[in-house]
């Protein structure tokens, strides 16, 4: 399975807190736009089309 679904982030709590902090003070629409930009950035970094499709499937609940 090319998509890594094992734990891969050192300092998970710190990352999570930073992620949530970026949303502080944003409206729902601004938060959604933030998330869209973030997803596009990360998707570009990943690049691999198979991996991206697999992630999309899991996020869509068809795992």
């Amino acid at each position: 399975m090319p998509l890594n679904t094992k734990s891969n982030i050192a300092g998970a709590d710190e990352f999570y807190a930073e992620l949530i902090k970026w949303h502080d003070g944003l409206s729902d629409e601004e938060s959604a736009a933030f998330n869209a930009r973030l997803i596009l950035l990360l998707a570009n970094h990943i690049g691999d089309r198979t991996v991206l499709s697999e992630a999309l499937q899991i996020a869509g609940g068809s795992d």
Binding site: T5, S7, I20, I58
Partner: peptide, 21 residues
């Protein structure tokens, strides 16, 4: 503390059922 924080929290919970990460 916010709606989006709640969304992320529940996304983590939903994914944790099947995905170790």
């Amino acid at each position: 503390k916010s709606r989006i924080s709640h969304v992320f929290r529940n996304a983590v919970l939903a994914l944790s059922e099947t995905h170790a990460f």
